[in-house]
């Protein structure tokens, strides 16, 4: 099995997976349960999610470890089980993904370095290191550090993975569009700087996830590509911007609607395309078909 960056160097556009949280709820998880603990307790269900995406045509699948840092697991009194839970998450996706790549999810700690007296960058580094080592042990090919807002926190995670594992490193951020039409994270980080500083810290692939549908992701990718022309870029887009129906947020874009943006997204510079909130294996299958049509005539 080669690595992801080498595959991208051939010019190939790859497809990633879709949402995990909603999938877990559909398999019976209830509010208040620790989603990450399911990798241990409901291993086959978790592996089944990875399999669904793999069968839908994803070239890589994530893991059920978004909240499996010691900081997040502490909410459930599980902070002493970081290694076990992350290793199980990687094994579950490895089992479900077959010969596809496993990109292991690492989400934010939920703590803020700014103005916080009780956490330091060293604490973050140690927590991410512990998580990344266990994910590698469980069979991951890469870490996908995602939904980041703060460049300092992302850099801690990138360095922790870089210095302690052989994993490839993906680093993606969540941006909002402000009243002037600019993209920023809530910590005040723009796409260009996020990409530049992630690469400088050792990330192999940068990008953006959540917060936006495909249409806005195109603009974000353009900004990253302009700042870092040689960067490989991953997009995990929501199924559009949520619409409120009877007090509940619904993600409006169908698989076909999302897939229709694929050519423009590739044109903007995206190398890996997948989904985030509101996306399903059907969305990923449609994105896969669109990527194949776009790449038609090029043999892999």
């Amino acid at each position: 099995m080669g690595n992801i960056v080498n595959a991208l160097k051939t010019g190939r556009v790859m497809v990633s997976d879709g949402a995990w949280g909603t999938f877990l709820f559909s398999k019976g998880m209830s509010a208040g349960e620790c989603p990450d603990a399911w990798s241990v307790e409901r291993f086959d269900d978790v592996a089944g999610i990875a399999r669904s995406y793999s069968e839908a045509g994803a070239d890589m699948v994530e893991t059920n470890s978004f909240g499996a840092s010691r900081f997040k697991l502490a909410h459930y009194g599980l902070e002493d089980r970081v290694s076990e839970i992350n290793e199980a998450a990687a094994r579950a996706s490895r089992k479900g993904a077959g010969d596809k790549y496993v990109i292991a999810s690492i989400g934010p700690t939920g703590k803020m370095l700014v103005m916080s007296k009780d956490v330091t960058k060293e604490d973050f580094y140690d927590a991410f290191k512990e998580q990344a080592i266990a994910l590698e042990k469980g069979g991951a090919d890469a870490v996908c550090i995602e939904t980041m807002n703060d460049i300092d926190e992302a850099v801690c995670a990138i360095r922790a993975a870089k210095e302690n594992t052989e994993l490839e490193i993906i680093s993606t951020f969540t941006f909002d569009r402000n009243s002037r039409g600019e993209f920023w994270t809530m910590m005040g980080l723009p796409p260009a700087k996020a990409a530049r500083e992630s690469l400088a810290a050792g990330a192999d692939i940068v990008g953006t996830n959540c917060g936006n549908g495909m249409e806005r992701m195109i603009e974000i990718v353009r900004e990253m590509k302009e700042a870092c022309p040689d960067a490989f870029i991953l997009v995990h887009a929501n199924a559009g911007l949520p619409e409120n129906i009877d007090g509940v947020d619904v993600f409006p874009e169908t698989p076909e609607m999302m897939a229709a943006y694929v050519p423009e997204l590739i044109g903007a510079g995206a190398n890996i395309i997948g989904g985030c909130c509101g996306t399903t294996p059907a969305h990923i299958a449609a994105i896969k078909r669109a990527v194949e049509v776009h790449s038609d005539g090029i043999a892999w």
């Binding site: 803020m112 103005m115 807002n149 402000n178 009243s179 920023w184 809530m186 910590m187 005040g188």
Partner: peptide, 8 residues
């Protein structure tokens, strides 16, 4: 309106 940010 996200013209200033959380740290501020």
């Amino acid at each position: 309106e996200l013209v200033v940010f959380l740290p501020q």
